[in-house]
Amino acid sequence: MATISEIAKAAGVGVGTVSRYLNNEPHVSEPKQKKIQAAIDELHYTPSAIATQLRSQTTKNIGFLVSRITNPFLAALFDAVETNLKARGYQVLVSQTHDDPTAEKRFLDQIKTHQLDGVIMASVEDADLVRQIAAEYPNSIVLLNEEIEDAAIKQVTLDHYQATLNGLNYLYQQGHRRIAYATGGDFPSLRHGQSRTQAYQDFYTAHQLTIDPNLIYPKRHGLKDGQMIGETIAQLNRAQRPEAIFTNSDEVAMGVIAAVQAAGLRVPEDLAVVGYDDQPMAQFAPVPLTTIKQPVRAMAEQAVALLLQGLNAKAEPVASKRDLQLTLVIRKSA
């Protein structure tokens, strides 16, 4: 393979001039450009991909950080992001934190070592760390379906507070007053699901109702968690049992439905159930699921566009606020 020195000799110019031409830098005259390109063609010169990467400090690698990729909603979000970036010549590396700030730090450190050009974060464990890295490497991080207040970070945020209120108010309008609540985070929450949990608390205050701590189910994520909740509810006597449950995951909601039906309770007559995300399987559940629909494709497109714009790469126009609305989909479970 020819070297830059051989190209320079054949073209009758200096090595520095060839280097500037290969890196698309200014101050190379048109005649010299033609001579260099002719020498490149004659000697069949191919620039080293690794050398080009080192010069430009780009890897074409983008990180995607989630708490659990086994969550069908997050898996769908990753698929949409990966498809979008792959079409633009990027490779996407996914990592799970499992709610561990240390795992988050290890992954984000790859920005510092130039193993990743940037990261799209669909979960945040340590907000202070994310702020710090975003300040050191501006435009390298985009938050997707997560929010850090007062941070100079591009964020794709949806109004989960209002969407949760809409779901709870719908249950209230159906006559339900004892409404259980299942969340993937803590209760009360300072991180995961904070806005949704705040909406639940504010809903009870607005309607002058009292939250029953026995009807709060924190750190529940999947079908088995939902089944455990359903089994617990089914064992309660009628006075203690909730009339409805608002869950922060379609998986949890469907697990609840399966368990209470197995125990002889009817949905929605004995227990109304609302999920979150509107995963494809929600409409095919034994009792089609009432849920909050998240606009996965628009969210992914927005996050990719914001990140690539920050990296000075080509990107599609950013989605509108209307594209990013959450909507209540009413089916038979509530």
Score class of each variant (00 low, 15 high):
residue 106 R to C: 03
residue 99 D to Y: 10
residue 149 E to Y: 06
residue 134 A to H: 04
residue 118 G to Y: 07
residue 164 T to N: 02
residue 166 N to L: 04
residue 119 V to I: 15
residue 143 L to Y: 05
residue 122 A to I: 12
residue 167 G to Y: 07
residue 105 K to E: 13
residue 119 V to F: 08
residue 128 D to Q: 15
residue 159 D to C: 09
residue 170 Y to T: 04
residue 152 A to R: 11
residue 99 D to G: 05
residue 103 A to M: 13
residue 118 G to A: 08
residue 99 D to P: 02
residue 99 D to F: 09
residue 162 Q to W: 05
residue 159 D to G: 08
residue 171 L to R: 00
residue 142 V to Y: 03
residue 102 T to H: 11
residue 134 A to D: 06
residue 131 R to G: 01
residue 121 M to S: 08
residue 105 K to Q: 13
residue 159 D to K: 06
residue 143 L to I: 06
residue 142 V to Q: 05
residue 112 K to G: 11
residue 116 L to Y: 06
residue 165 L to H: 01
residue 137 Y to M: 04
residue 142 V to A: 04
residue 165 L to T: 01
residue 153 I to G: 01
residue 128 D to K: 15
residue 160 H to K: 11
residue 125 E to G: 08
residue 143 L to R: 04
residue 171 L to Y: 04
residue 104 E to V: 08
residue 142 V to N: 03
residue 123 S to V: 15
residue 137 Y to I: 04
residue 167 G to T: 08
residue 131 R to L: 02
residue 121 M to V: 06
residue 124 V to P: 09
residue 163 A to S: 15
residue 168 L to Q: 09
residue 144 L to S: 09
residue 121 M to C: 13
residue 117 D to S: 13
residue 155 Q to Y: 07
residue 121 M to K: 05
residue 132 Q to E: 15
residue 139 N to D: 14
residue 158 L to M: 13
residue 149 E to W: 02
residue 128 D to W: 07
residue 133 I to A: 00
residue 130 V to I: 13
residue 153 I to W: 00
residue 127 A to L: 07
residue 97 T to A: 11
residue 151 A to K: 09
residue 95 S to Q: 10
residue 109 D to N: 12
residue 108 L to A: 00
residue 113 T to F: 00
residue 101 P to Y: 11
residue 161 Y to M: 04
residue 153 I to F: 00
residue 168 L to H: 08
residue 117 D to T: 14
residue 141 I to N: 01
residue 162 Q to N: 12
residue 139 N to H: 12
residue 151 A to W: 06
residue 150 D to C: 02
residue 170 Y to R: 09
residue 93 L to D: 00
residue 149 E to G: 07
residue 92 V to G: 04
residue 110 Q to R: 14
residue 95 S to V: 07
residue 155 Q to M: 12
residue 121 M to G: 05
residue 103 A to D: 08
residue 126 D to L: 04
residue 105 K to W: 01
residue 111 I to H: 05
residue 118 G to T: 07
residue 160 H to Y: 13
residue 107 F to V: 05
residue 156 V to P: 06
residue 137 Y to Q: 10
residue 162 Q to P: 02
residue 111 I to A: 04
residue 125 E to Q: 14
residue 169 N to G: 03
residue 147 E to W: 13
residue 141 I to Q: 04
residue 146 E to I: 03
residue 146 E to L: 08
residue 98 H to V: 10
residue 168 L to Y: 09
residue 131 R to V: 01
residue 143 L to V: 07
residue 141 I to C: 03
